[in-house]
Simulated assay, not measured.
Amino acid sequence: MKTLLINTLLMVSLFTTTPLLAQDDPLRVGMSGQYFPFTFVEQDELKGFDVDIMNALAKEMGREVKYETANFSGLFGMLGAGRIDTVANQITITEERKKAYIFSEPYVYDGAQVVVKKGNNEIQGVEDLKGKTVAVNLGSNFEDLLQELPYADQIDIKTYESNLERDTALGRVDAFVMDRVSASQIIKEKPLPLKLAGPTFSSITNAYPFKDTEKGRALRDEVNQALATLRDRGTLKDISEKWFGTDITRP
């Protein structure tokens, strides 16, 4: 009888404390710190739209957030190895990524944009990239979007870890492709002679990827609940308007 009582108390203790212990675990988030204005480093401080959104999510979830920075091309490897729980680096939902990961609800709605050096009138949009050298971020989905074009074999695609906008401004490449929101902010904030070339050519939705495990699914659900709360409260809109002057968190 005494043994049964002890075992029962142990089981109750496990069921009542395990969720609290899990809730105390920090949310490990990977980002590059090299994708202005979503994630960048200024005076040794990690800043950006994605940082503000994730900080608000962690606060709503009652968790500490621990950031791990690495080159963008290595972030999914860190996620797959279990070194981080998710990636907050304007990650676009793609069919290929959905085969390997599960995603939260989207928190950014955007489009792919061609950017050229000011004075370049040869490129008026994506249809003019034939025969041109075009830069994209290594590991991003923009290379895939260009490869899907019917004239992809006529585009010389160069991959960069960073500074693709600098090489475009210097004329080392003819254009670069990234999301319209980031491109617009780079043109607004950085002293580089760049301009948008034509309208967006593909819609983009950004979300948080997780491993398809019991823990990953639980974290995804927890993040979705926090996202819904922050959206209803207007927090996502406020953060978006702080960085972009408009709300990119709704379609």
Rank of each mutant, 00 (worst) to 15 (best):
F142K: 00
F142H: 11
A152D: 08
V134Q: 05
E105D: 15
G139W: 08
E127T: 11
K118N: 12
L145K: 06
A112Q: 03
A135Q: 04
N120M: 04
V116E: 01
L129I: 12
K117M: 06
A152G: 02
F142E: 05
N137I: 14
F103T: 13
K130C: 07
N120T: 06
V126P: 01
K132P: 07
V115Y: 02
K117L: 01
P106M: 10
G139K: 07
V108N: 11
E143G: 05
L138I: 06
E122C: 01
D153T: 14
D128V: 06
Q124G: 07
D110R: 04
S104I: 09
Y107S: 10
I102D: 11
A112D: 12
E148D: 12
Y151V: 11
I123F: 04
G111A: 11
D110S: 14
P150V: 13
D110N: 14
K132W: 07
L138A: 12
Q124R: 13
A152L: 02
T133D: 01
V114W: 02
K130Y: 06
L145C: 00
E105N: 15
G111P: 00
I123R: 02
A135L: 06
E143R: 10
K132F: 08
E127S: 11
G119P: 07
V136G: 04
S140E: 03
G139F: 07
L149N: 05
D110P: 03
L145G: 00
P106S: 11
G111N: 09
Y107A: 09
Y107N: 14
N121A: 11
G131N: 09
V115C: 03
E148K: 11
Q124I: 05
D128W: 04
G119L: 10
N137W: 01
A135Y: 03
L145A: 09
Y151A: 10
A112N: 07
L145Q: 10
E148F: 03
G125W: 08
Y109W: 15
K118C: 02
E127P: 00
Q113A: 06
D144E: 10
K118P: 01
K117S: 02
V114Q: 02
Q147F: 01
P150G: 13
Y107D: 13
